Amino acid sequence: MKLDSTVAAVVTGGASGLGEATARALAAKGVKVAIFDLQAEKGEKVAAEIGGVFCEVNVTLDESVDAGFAKARAAHGQERVLVNCAGTANGIKTASRDKNTGEIKHFPLDAFNWVIQINLIGTFRCIAKSAAGMMTLDPVGEFGERGAMVNTASVAAEDGQIGQAAYSASKGGVVGMTLPIARDLMSEGIRVNTILPGIFETPLLAGLPDNVRDALSASVPFPKRLGQPNEYAALALTMIETGYFNGEDVRLDGAIRMAPR
């Protein structure tokens, strides 16, 4: 797909981190970008800087996502690109014993469900609604392409650590649904791929002490550093621009394989 001013895109989680970097990279190509996020102040700022539009969206709610797509399409027209970066995490063991009291607790199911609702079902909700919109577009090019989507999983989908049962399940679900969704949409000319980032320089890690950040960097085989959001954005754009890229799940992690903790 050729990325230029004739193309509209939606980036969920686009107010910061990987999503912000991708929104900026798309805009640099001339693409009209809509940012879906709950961080209104940051989202409005990024949208203003890239000439895009901000839509305050909660990906766990149908009506919120519908309103976001309606606003984005009113401003830019039907999107041909969707990048799903909205996500969250928690760290809770399946069951654990208090070191002091010996009290045994299990993972609260509402906390497990919260991660699944955002990372997995929220991603699918945006995919399904965007795909339905893309299907109204005229196909372009020799092979009749209508759109391209990029999802965000995590290396935790394959190397889940202690306390990551919910997070790994949600990201594993994103990986698991990539190929069947690509097959669902193949006759409509819509491609779907997923990136599995490793340890990246994001707002979540920015507040960590230097010694912790240094240890994380040292755990990466090569290069021994945190991944940069612009590297995620570069791979996302490659997936979108390369027409033969479809149904793939690609690790972007400096060859790291996560230890149990």
Rank of each mutant, 00 (worst) to 15 (best):
M1N: 05
K2L: 09
D4W: 06
V10T: 03
V11L: 06
V11S: 03
A15R: 02
S16R: 14
L18K: 14
L18V: 13
G19V: 12
A21E: 13
T22S: 15
T22C: 09
R24P: 12
K29S: 13
V33R: 10
A34I: 09
I35Y: 09
Q39I: 01
A40N: 10
K42G: 02
K45G: 03
V46H: 00
A47H: 06
A48K: 15
I50A: 11
I50C: 09
V53A: 14
C55G: 11
V59D: 11
V59R: 11
V65P: 09
A75L: 04
Q78Y: 12
R80H: 08
L82M: 12
L82G: 13
N84Q: 08
N84V: 01
A86W: 00
A86E: 01
G87W: 02
N90Q: 09
G91N: 14
T94V: 15
K99A: 13
K99M: 05
K99P: 07
N100H: 14
G102W: 07
G102H: 10
I104T: 10
I104Q: 08
F107M: 15
F107R: 13
L109R: 12
D110F: 04
N113D: 15
N113Q: 15
N119K: 00
G122H: 01
R125L: 13
C126L: 07
A132I: 07
G133Q: 14
M135W: 09
L137A: 12
L137I: 08
P139I: 13
P139T: 12
E142C: 02
G144D: 13
E145H: 10
T152K: 05
A157I: 01
D159Y: 15
G160C: 08
Q161W: 04
Y167D: 02
A169Y: 01
G173R: 00
G173D: 00
P180Y: 01
P180R: 01
I181C: 09
A182D: 11
M186G: 01
E188T: 07
I190K: 04
R191C: 11
N193E: 02
I195W: 01
L196Y: 05
G198N: 05
I199H: 06
F200A: 11
E201P: 02
P203M: 12
G207I: 04
N211I: 09
V212G: 04
L216H: 07
K224Y: 05
G227K: 04
P229D: 10
E231G: 05
Y232I: 03
Y232K: 02
L237T: 11
I240T: 06
D253I: 00
G254Y: 03
I256Q: 11
R257V: 12
M258T: 04
R261K: 08
R261L: 06
